[in-house]
Design a protein around this nucleic acid. Structure first.
Lengths: 359, 359
DNA sequence: AATCGGTGTGAGTCCGGTCTCAATCGTAGA
DNA sequence: TCTACGATTGAGACCGGACTCACACCGATT
C-alpha cells in the first residue's frame, strides 16, 4: 500500500497533514523548516511525509517565493566544444549554489535568441547568461536588463547594455598574434569567421560581433604599427558549414597573391581549414601558416601541432555563473571583476612564408 | 508610461482584464485562446495585453495544467563532444515541439544522478532523458518509470528498467572491429575505458555499464571464434583523467609482451592515448595500432588519420527526444523503433603488428 | 490572581493562471 | 409573440505550497 501511494496525483502537504493529523499549516511548517513547530508534530509530519513518499512541488513553491532556482543559458551552439566547456563551467558552478540550468541553443540566430529570452523569462528563470549572437541587435538584452532581471553576457559585449560581461580581451591578443605572424615575415594574412553579414567584407564594414571586430581591430593595429598595407581582401566572413569553409580556403590559397597565413576564428572553422589545406596537398607550415582561436586538446595531435590562441573557457563559464548568482542573491559586485586574457600558444603551425620555395 | 509598465510586479491577467474592462475569466480566455469570446472582447483584451506588455507566467500555467513543457536531460559530461552532439540533437528536437531542456551534468557519478533525477522530478519536468552512469544501480530509474513519468535512456541500458532505450548495438560492432584487428594479425589487443569499478579488471568481472560490457562481449566472441586466447590482462578500467590514461598507455606498451593495438572507449580517452604514444616516440600504425569509439572531425586531421567506430550521435539524440515526446503526448510507439548501428571507419591508424621491426 | 511574553496551532489568503458552472443575452423556430 | 438553445460572460473554485493573523496555552511576573 505505502509503496505505490504515488498512484495518480502526487502527494501534497495537505495529504501529509491529514496523515499526520495536523493542520496543513503545521505540516507545511514542519516540512519547510520554518515557524514554530512542536517536536511531537514535527516527528509525526516527517514520518507521514516519509511514509507517503512526499516530494514538494517546486513549481508551486517557485510560484509564491518568486524564485525558481533556475538560470537560463543561451548559447549559439553547444555542439561547439567552446560552448560545451563554458556550459560545463556554468552548470558546475550553478549546481554548487543550488541552481539548475535551462539550456537553449540559438544556432547564432538573433531571432531564435529573442525568442529564447522570451521563453526563459516566461518561465521565470532567476537570471540569464547569454552569449549574444549579435553585439548590435540588442534590444531584447536591454529589455531584460531594464526589467531588472539579472543578466550576464558571455564572450561578446552588447552595445548599450551595461551588464557584467565575461569576455576575453580580444584586441590585445589579436594584435599580439598578428604581430607575431608579421614578425615571421607574413604580409598576406587571411582571417575567416562564421559571423553573418549582409554584405561581403570591406574595410570599415561595421561588424555585428564585438569579439570579431575587436580581433579585426587588433590585426589592423598590428599592420599599421608595422607600416604595412592592410590585407583587407583576405578577410572572409559568412563562412557557413564545412563545405563553404573549404571553398573559401581554396580561394584564399589559389588566388593570385595568395594568403601565406590563415587565422581561423574558432575551432570548428579551423578544422575545415586544415582539412582543405591537406586536400590541396599543401603543407603546414611550409606552404601556409595556420593559427586558430580556441585551444582544443586535439590541436596537439596534428602534424604539426597547431599554434593557437587559448582562452580560459571553463573559467569564464564559472565566472559568468558566479557573477550571475551574485546578482540574483543581491550581493554587490566583488572588488575587482576578473579580466580574462587569452594566450598565444606557439606550437608548430606557423613558419616563415615561402620557406618551401626558398629552402 | 506604457513602456515601463513592468515596474515592480509583473502584469497579470487580472491587470489586463481591468484595463480591458472585462472579467478575469474573459481576459484569460482571450489570451489563452480557448472558450468562447466575442470579437469585441478579444480585441480589447489583446490590445490591453499589448499595451501593458503582458507575458503569461509559465509557472502558474504549468501548475494547473500539470505540464511544464520542459524535459530533463541528465548526462555524464557535456564537455565530452559525444554528449555535446547528442544534446544538440535533443534540444533541436525538443524546441521543434515546444519543449525546453533542463540540463544536468553528473560527472558519471551515480549519487549525483540520483539527486539530479530527484530535483528534476520536483521541478515537474514532463519527462527525462538519461544517459545512466550505471546499468546496474538503477532503482532511481525504475522508480521514475513506475511513477509513470516518461523516461528514455540514452547510450546505455539499465537492468530491470523496461523503457525506450536509444543505444547503438555495441556487441556487433565490437566483434566486427576486433575481428578486423585480429585479421590484421593482432593478438595483443588492449581496451581502455573510464568506467569506474571497485576492483581492477579480471575475466568475468561484472561491468556496471551495458555499453562497456557489450563491447567486451564482442571482443571475447571475436577471440573465441578465432580460437585465440583472450588478452584479458590488457583490459584497463578506471582510466580517470588525461594523466592516468597516459600512464596506463605507457604500461600497456612497455610491459613484456606489450599490446600491439589499443582500443579507446571514447574520444577523450583516445586523445590521451595518442598523445602518450607520440610521447613515447612510437609511431601509429607501425609500432602500435589504434582504434577508438566516436568519430570526431579532428580524427581526420591527425597523421595518420584515425580509424574509428562512428556512432550516429546526433541522430540518437533526436531519436531519444522524439521517443520521449511521443510518450509525453501519450501517443503509441511507432511501428518499429529504430535500431542504431555504428560503423567501422577504416582510416590509417590500424596496421600489421611488427611491421616496423619486420619491414 | 491578573498580566505578560513567547510558543503552538489552525483557518484562510495569496501567487497567477485554468477551468467549471450558472446566469444572461440574442435571436431563430413554433 | 413566446420559448428554446447556443453564444457570452463573470464569479469563484482550484493547483500546491508559503505565509499572515488571530487565538489558545503555559509558565513567569508583580
Amino acid at each position: 500500500m505505502s509503496t505505490d501511494a504515488s498512484r495518480r496525483r502526487d502527494v501534497t502537504v495537505a495529504d501529509v497533514a491529514k496523515a499526520a493529523q495536523v493542520s496543513k499549516a503545521q505540516a507545511a511548517r514542519a516540512l519547510g523548516n520554518y515557524g514554530a513547530v512542536s517536536d511531537d508534530v514535527r516527528e509525526r509530519v516527517l514520518a507521514a511525509a516519509e511514509e507517503l513518499n512526499y516530494r514538494p512541488n517546486e513549481l508551486a513553491r517557485s510560484m509564491n517565493t518568486g524564485k525558481s532556482n533556475t538560470i537560463g543559458v543561451v548559447v549559439g551552439d553547444i555542439e561547439n566544444p567552446h560552448f560545451g566547456l563554458a556550459t560545463r563551467g556554468i552548470t558546475d558552478t550553478a549546481k554548487k549554489s543550488g541552481f539548475n540550468v535551462i539550456l537553449v541553443n540559438t544556432d547564432e540566430d538573433t531571432a531564435a535568441e529573442v525568442d529564447a529570452v522570451k521563453v526563459l523569462l516566461d518561465k521565470r528563470v532567476d537570471g540569464l547568461i547569454i552569449a549574444p549572437a549579435s553585439s548590435v541587435d540588442t534590444q531584447h538584452l536591454a529589455s531584460v536588463h531594464t526589467s531588472g532581471r539579472p543578466l550576464v553576457l558571455l564572450d561578446r559585449k552588447a552595445q548599450g547594455v551595461e551588464v557584467d560581461t565575461v569576455a576575453v580581451e580580444m584586441e590585445g591578443i589579436s594584435y599580439e598574434s598578428t604581430t607575431y605572424l608579421i614578425g615571421e615575415g607574413h604580409r598576406r594574412i587571411a582571417f575567416i569567421s562564421t559571423i553573418r553579414t549582409d554584405e561581403p567584407y570591406f574595410a570599415g564594414l561595421p561588424l555585428d560581433s564585438s569579439q570579431i571586430s575587436d580581433r579585426r581591430d587588433g590585426m589592423k593595429r598590428a599592420f599599421d604599427e608595422a607600416g604595412l598595407p592592410q590585407p583587407e581582401d583576405l578577410v572572409r566572413l559568412n563562412a557557413g558549414g564545412p563545405e563553404s569553409i573549404r571553398k573559401i580556403t581554396r580561394e584564399l590559397l589559389q588566388q593570385p597573391d595568395p594568403a601565406t597565413a590563415i587565422i581561423a576564428s574558432d575551432g570548428l572553422i579551423g578544422l575545415s581549414v586544415v582539412e582543405a589545406i591537406q586536400d590541396l596537398g599543401l603543407s603546414i607550415p611550409d606552404d601556409v601558416s595556420f593559427l586558430m582561436y580556441d585551444d582544443f586538446a586535439w590541436t596537439r595531435l596534428t602534424t604539426p601541432p597547431l599554434t593557437v590562441i587559448a582562452q580560459p573557457v571553463y573559467e569564464m563559464g564559472v565566472a559568468a555563473a558566479e557573477a550571475l548568482i551574485r546578482q540574483i542573491q543581491g550581493r554587490k559586485a566583488p572588488a575587482a571583476k576578473p579580466e580574462f586574457s587569452a594566450t598565444l600558444v606557439k606550437r608548430g603551425s606557423v613558419g616563415v612564408p615561402g620557406s618551401r620555395a626558398n629552402g
